[in-house]
Design a protein around this nucleic acid. Structure first.
Lengths: 219, 219
DNA sequence: CGTTTCTTTGAATCCGGTCAAGGTCCGTGG
DNA sequence: CCACGGACCTTGACCGGATTCAAAGAAACG
């Protein structure tokens, strides 16, 4: 297992100014190794998390072993705010990561800061819902080609650098896209053969035909 | 179009006591005919809605005509609280319905009542997220049989009566489950042949093998 | 290096989609 | 009351994209 890959991905949510950031006031920073569990499915928890460095996947296991990945989270992203009493997904570090965690109920104990936290939780939940809806469309109504193309483009677009590093393996991609690992692999080979993307090894790639790629992402 | 079917489905969220219910304080009731639009995709809106009587579907159209149904809502359910500035889905009445609507920003204008509204919005959004995640699992990792079985069982379970009436047609079911209308129809025929469900016409059915049906709903 | 794990490729299969036709339900009007 | 028409639903035959099973190839790690 690679445990020191460096990944630089732009955050999904702009970090609030430090002064107004509830995480900085009451958060705790913890390191996690690759594949280490941050919290478990069905575990109840009162925390919310933010990726400081690294990358995280949330996943859910069905009884018969089928696995679905809920989402991937990168530096700056907030996760773990599933609304119920207990987590419906497991969260694991994809690579070596640093995670900031904060007690949700802290919002009651702080005056103005509590309101800030509340507001942040609300915003993050709303974003989470929007992202889940987008994921839903992808799963329900897209072909394997479209799924893989969306995924690669999405990843590349939140990366300033020319070359993007995949923090996850093919199996994780497959479980996110609702495909098998073989289909993902074949589709990537195909996209590369068409000159839309180019791989350097199996984890590093860059987009060659961004506009052509974008055109095949129906929305 | 049948426009006066009677549907009795239990609400997803228990109605709050009238005194604490923000809808009763500032809501407006409106009637909608079958297939009438309540709000449109990309329309921006400051309202939240509750089904008083009837049933509603939210759906989203891709450029090339592919349609995905977000969810179905029945009496007592709250909908329309997609977080962004504008709606990402269209909402339409499935059958003749009565809808209560309330201005979201009303929460700022009312003291304690505003807090109640805020709390209700939060709860409803959280529930919406949970439901969307469930829908995601269904779409990504279930076979046609499992999808249809889940759907029928779910519908039957929130119905006190012996016979359940489907407020939507086969096309709507298909667009919800990520299948074609033919596959839905075939699968229903198959489930009926196996004695798991029984149809009386194409809209009325009851579950015969609830436990066998439940067993095929992986979760 | 040798071993293990991950990825790619190939061939065969199958589930669900597509295309096409027939059947049913239901409202309307003769 | 029955005949007609249109929308919706079901069924059949065939097709194709994705899965499955199997094996080879590449990359990571000790």
């Amino acid at each position: 297992m690679t445990s020191h890959s460096f990944v630089s991905i732009a955050p999904r949510i702009a970090k609030p100014a430090p002064a107004a950031d509830p995480f900085n006031l009451v958060g705790v920073r913890l390191p996690y190794a690759a594949d280490e569990e941050i919290y478990a499915q069905d575990e109840d928890s009162d925390f919310v998390y933010r990726v400081v460095r690294g990358a995280v996947r949330t996943s859910r296991l069905l009884r018969d072993g089928r696995r679905q990945i809920g989402d991937f989270y990168y530096a700056g992203d907030v996760f773990g705010l599933e609304p119920g009493e207990q987590h419906r997904f497991t969260a694991e570090a994809l690579i070596d990561s640093e995670i900031l965690m904060i007690r949700r109920s802290a919002s009651n104990a702080f005056g103005a800061d509590g309101a800030d936290l509340e507001r942040m939780l609300w915003t993050a939940t709303a974003q989470e819902l929007a992202r889940t809806q987008e994921h839903l469309m992808l799963l329900a109504r897209k072909t394997a080609r479209e799924k893989v193309a969306s995924f690669m483009l999405d990843l590349a677009q939140r990366n300033a650098a020319e070359v993007t590093v995949l923090p996850m393996g093919r199996q994780d991609m497959a479980d996110y896209l609702g495909l098998t690992i073989e289909t993902v692999s074949r589709t990537l080979t195909c996209l590369q053969a068409e000159g839309l993307i180019e791989f350097f090894g199996s984890r590093r790639f860059c987009v060659r035909g961004a506009s052509r790629l974008a055109r095949m992402v129906v929305c």
